[in-house]
Design a protein around this nucleic acid. Structure first.
Length: 273
DNA sequence: CACGAGACCTGTTCGC
DNA sequence: TGCGAACAGGTCTCGT
């Protein structure tokens, strides 16, 4: 489900609060209820519960698609994968079917991890490096420059679409934003990374930046059961728009499969050669 | 190193 | 209307 802009939106809301929900920052964990052990990757669920009890949420941030919670002693990492969600609820509100982990907090609020497909994972670690260490650069960080992207592209011989989805190449881009970035950059998803001219690499950098920044500004996309209030889904230029006109040139958006992922592009703007 | 297939899951939508 | 197939914003592992 969530890609960088969606996780960023969730992290921001937990960090500072939103609407009727208070900030998660500063809350103490009284007890942890593990209703389904599957999502707890490390350590084993019993140790995880015991370890988190009594710790406080000091800060909530994002790295790639990971939600990174700094606790008093440990780091709590959450990856939502396809269908996960984390949100605060008033304590005592009836639990939903797929609320797998519930953190009971001081002040009468609960943090819930909800995940119908159960692909999401949770880690409790002293140091987050073991899990986050392999991630590529943050695409919106100042160190991620057009020149750096160009060098990274040249050093690999991969198709652009699967490369953008590779979290060790760059962290946080998923299927939607990869297609949106390539469309903005006017680059075919099957272009080889080492075939880009510097000008094209710079276009890709701008495409990535623009797609992610607009996504964040719109609070992410809300699709299916994961409705979090964002409306980026109404501003997609390529993703999910097969047969509809390209907003730039009017040609019909085409749908292909690349690396077993649905891929949408404009055959007119995004030429292969 | 690069790539494809299969696995992990449940829920929704599509096609007959 | 009903029912199975296909598909969904992700990642890992294995084989070539």
């Amino acid at each position: 489900m969530p890609e960088l802009p969606e996780v960023e939106t969730i992290a921001r809301r937990l960090r500072t609060g939103c609407g009727g929900e208070p900030a998660l920052t500063g809350r103490e964990i009284l007890t942890v209820e593990v209703r389904h052990p599957k999502p707890i990757a490390v350590p084993d669920p019993e140790e995880a519960r015991a370890r988190m009890r009594g710790q406080r949420f000091l800060d909530i941030a994002r790295r790639g698609k990971f939600l990174v919670c700094r606790l008093t002693r440990d780091y709590l990492l959450i990856h939502l994968r396809m269908s996960g969600d984390v949100q605060l609820f008033p304590g005592g509100e009836p639990l939903r079917k797929h609320d797998h982990v519930v953190w009971h907090l001081d002040g009468g609020w609960d943090l819930r991890f909800h995940d119908p497909r159960r692909f999401g994972r949770i880690w409790i670690l002293e140091s987050p490096e073991r899990v986050l260490g392999a991630l590529g650069p943050e695409p919106l960080a100042p160190e991620f420059t057009p020149a750096r992207l160009e060098a990274m592209l040249r050093s690999r011989k991969r198709l652009l679409k699967p490369l953008l989805l590779d979290q060790t190449f760059v962290a946080g881009i998923g299927n939607i934003y990869a297609d949106e970035a390539l469309h903005r950059a006017r680059l075919h998803p099957l272009r080889r990374s080492d075939s880009l001219r510097p000008e094209e690499a710079a276009r890709l950098w701008r495409g990535i930046h623009a797609a992610l920044r607009v996504g964040i500004a719109r609070d992410g996309a809300s699709i299916d059961w994961v409705y979090r209030g964002g409306d980026f889904q109404n501003h997609l230029r390529a993703y999910g728009r097969e047969g509809e006109p390209c907003p730039k040139c009017g040609a019909r958006i085409r749908h292909i499969t690349v690396g077993q992922r649905s891929t949408y592009y404009c055959p007119q703007c995004q030429k292969k050669r």
